Computed example of a mutant assay.
Amino acid sequence: MDPLSEILSLLRPKSYVSAGFDAGGDWAVRFDDQQGYIKCYAITRGGCWLTVDGLADPLRLEAGESFVMPSGRSFTLASGSGLTPVAARDIFPPARDGGVVRLGGGGGMYLVGARFAVDGARAGLLLAGLPPVLHVHAPADREALRWSVERMIGELHDPRPGSQLIARHLAHMMLVQALRLCMARAAPGRIGWFFALADPRMAAAIGAMHADPARRWTVQDLATTAGMSRSAFAARFRDTTGEAPMAYLTRWRMLLAADRLETTRDPVSVVAAELGYWSDSAFSTAFKRVMGRPPWAWSGGT
C-alpha cells in the first residue's frame, strides 16, 4: 500500500455523510465544530465565497472546482460579503445521509460532497502537515473529478436501493482524488509529509519506511533509497517534511502501534518487537513522547 493510502487508512473514518446543497438568493452558512472531521466538496453550479477561520482572505469557488477542509477549522460559505450566516446545524439535520438540502429556494449555487468523521487521537498527528484548505481548480483537475462528482449527484437526486452506500464510496473516491491532485499541484516550498510525497526522491524514502517500519533504518540507508548523498538527503527531507528522517520514522511507528493497541489484544511487548523495538521500556518512552500517553493507557489497548 502506498503512503497516502496507508495514512488515510489509519484515519479510519467512522462515518460518512454525503449530501447535496442547493442555495439561492443571498445566503451564508457557518460551519462550526469541525474538529475531527474532513470535508470534501465540489461546486457543480454557480459559485460562492469560502472564508476559513485564521485565513485573512476569502476564497472564490466556481462551478467545476472542489475543495478539501482537512484541518477541522470552522468556515463559512456565502453568496457574497457582509451577510449574516445561519448555523449549518439549523439547516442540516445532524445525522443526515443522502438527499439534497435547499436554502433560499435553491437554483443559484449547488455543491455536492461529504463529511468524514476521523479518529481524533490520531487525526491531529496525521493531518498536522496539511494546510487549512486544499483547492482543486485547474481545468485538467476538474475533469479528473467529474465522473465521481456526477455519479454522486445522480445518487443523491434519484435515490435507489444501495444509493447511500454508493454515495459513500464515491465520496471517499472524491477525497482521495482531490488530495492526489492537490499534492501534484503543490507550490514549491510547502512543508509537510503531504507535500513531500510529491517529491519522487522523498516519496521513495517515505515509501520504504512505510513498507518496512521495523527495519533498523539509518539515514544512509534512506539516502541510498532516494539516490542521494547522506547530507543532501537529510537536509532535503527536513526541508520538505519539517522533521528529520528518524523523527518521521518514529512517529510513523507510534501511529502504527497505536492502531494495533486500539484494535487488537496484542500485548505491548509483541507490538514493540514487531515495530523494531526489543526493549519495552524504550518503546514505551518513545510512544508516550509521540502520542502523549503511555501504551497501556491507549484506548482499547492492553
Rank of each mutant, 00 (worst) to 15 (best):
I166N: 00
A235S: 11
T224Q: 13
G192P: 07
A244R: 09
L175C: 04
L165S: 14
I191G: 02
F233V: 04
L181W: 06
F237D: 08
R160P: 04
H172F: 13
R190G: 04
A214Y: 00
V176C: 08
R201Y: 10
T218Y: 08
P159G: 08
T224E: 12
L181V: 09
P161F: 09
A167S: 14
L181A: 11
M183T: 00
A178C: 01
E243H: 04
L170W: 12
T225F: 09
A223C: 00
L179M: 10
F194V: 06
G192S: 02
A198V: 01
D212L: 08
D221M: 03
T241L: 07
R216I: 06
D158G: 04
C182L: 05
M202R: 05
G154L: 02
Q177H: 12
G162C: 01
A203S: 12
P161K: 09
S163A: 15
Q164N: 08
P159D: 06
A186R: 15
G154N: 11
L170F: 13
D158W: 15
A171Q: 05
R201S: 14
P159W: 00
L156R: 05
A187N: 05
G189C: 12
Q220W: 03
P213W: 04
M209G: 02
A196F: 05
A184V: 06
T218M: 03
A235F: 09
G189Q: 11
T241M: 02
L181G: 02
F237P: 08
A167N: 03
H210N: 12
I191T: 15
S229M: 07
A198L: 02
P161G: 11
H169Y: 05
S148L: 07
Q177W: 01
R215F: 03
L170G: 11
T224H: 10
L197G: 01
A211V: 10
E150H: 12
A187R: 14
T240M: 13
R201H: 11
R216W: 01
A211Q: 01
A226E: 15
D221I: 00
Q164D: 02
P188D: 03
E150F: 06
R215S: 11
R180E: 08
G192L: 09
D221Y: 06
T225R: 10
R168M: 13
P159V: 03
R180I: 03
P213H: 00
W193R: 08
T240F: 10
D158T: 14
M152A: 04
M174W: 04
A187Q: 13
A205Q: 08
P188W: 01
G162M: 14
R180A: 12
G227Q: 02
T218L: 04
A235Y: 04
A198G: 15
L170K: 11
M209D: 03
E150G: 07
G242D: 07
S148W: 00
A204S: 13
M183H: 13
V149M: 09
R216K: 13
P200E: 10
A178Y: 02
I191W: 01
F233I: 06
L179Y: 02
A178N: 01
T240E: 15
D212F: 07
I166K: 07
D239S: 15
T240V: 10
A167P: 07
R185P: 12
V176T: 14
S231C: 06
V176I: 14
